[in-house]
């Protein structure tokens, strides 16, 4: 299973980004192989509106089944849920910390968008 972490860095010790839609990139971690890839989120970062939807679209296409992030807005959450992707909240400083929290079952599943959208 693959997990997408929002991050500003490029490695496991990179910072966990608290925003989902406007995260610079995603670190896609493969739990079985214990390897990772980086996915750019530039398209969403540059979008005047609909960044969350664009980012969610990117996640769905990446094949990730789980997202670990700080906060997720209503539109992104709706798209992720429709695609059957679980969203977990983490306040961890780095991706590596968030990953170990996830492995130990210490992360809480997000049941609904936890921040307001910017445009609606």
């Amino acid at each position: 299973m693959k997990i997408a972490f929002t991050t500003t860095g490029e490695k496991l010790d990179g910072a966990l980004e608290s925003r989902f839609g406007r995260a610079p990139r995603f670190l896609l971690y493969d739990l079985e192989k214990e390897t990772f890839d980086l996915i750019d989120n530039q398209q969403a970062l540059n979008a005047p509106r609909g960044a969350g939807i664009q980012a969610a679209d990117t996640i769905v296409r990446s094949g990730a089944k789980v997202v670990v992030t700080g906060h997720c807005g209503p539109k992104a959450f709706q798209v992720l849920r429709a695609a059957g992707i679980s969203v977990y909240h983490s306040d961890a400083a780095t991706v590596a910390e968030a990953l170990s929290e996830f492995r130990s079952g210490g992360l809480s599943l997000v049941e609904s968008a936890d921040v307001e959208g910017h445009w609606a």
Partner: peptide, 23 residues
């Protein structure tokens, strides 16, 4: 539909489309 819309006002990812009228 989702591939066509550059504003992500309609999104379809192997699912029935979601519509975001405000976009």
């Amino acid at each position: 539909c989702g591939l066509f819309c550059r504003f992500h006002a309609i999104v379809s990812l192997e699912t029935k489309p979601l519509v975001f009228p405000e976009l």
